[in-house]
């Protein structure tokens, strides 16, 4: 069900074409670029309603409206071992921040299956899918 922001679909196609080893290395490189939400936007303890359900890495999502009507997404990942969540957060920030909200809302919830690969454990996939769904929900909320 493609239809999300073009940058995200490009990234999805790129990761889908990688073999397992390439994908893992690429995701680790992406995760290295993770920067948590600035304190000016949100400070610990982060509000519970910002927490991503089902995510064991204790991820939080923050959306800040921009003048052009789009959103800037920020994330926090409290578990230092939450490498997958960090990588997903970086990808969502790079591809959804500044994207039209209708496209963000229409992201395929299964996009993380293609980016992380089908061998990713069920628990991880569920957490990452919840992260996507929270970004989608933020877009939907700000469209109204």
């Amino acid at each position: 069900m493609p239809g999300g922001p073009p940058k995200l679909e490009s990234m999805r196609a790129m990761f889908s074409a990688m073999d397992r080893a390439e994908r893992i290395q690429a995701l680790i490189d992406v995760a290295d670029g993770f920067r948590p939400v600035p304190e000016a936007i949100a400070a610990r303890p982060y509000p519970g309603e910002r927490r991503v359900p089902h995510c064991e890495s204790e991820a939080f999502v923050f959306a800040v409206p921009r003048d052009d009507g789009t959103l800037k997404f920020h994330f926090a990942v409290e578990n230092p071992q939450g490498i997958s969540a960090m990588a997903a957060a970086v990808i969502l920030d790079k591809t959804c921040s500044g994207a039209p909200l209708d496209l963000v809302e229409s992201i395929d919830p299964d996009v993380m299956y293609d980016i992380f690969g089908r061998e990713l454990s069920m628990g991880k996939n569920m957490g990452l899918t919840s992260l996507v769904n929270m970004v989608r929900a933020e877009a939907a909320r700000h469209r109204r």
Partner: peptide, 9 residues
């Protein structure tokens, strides 16, 4: 691990 990203990271 459960998470395949952990060891290589």
């Amino acid at each position: 691990n459960e998470d395949p990203l952990l060891y290589p990271s």
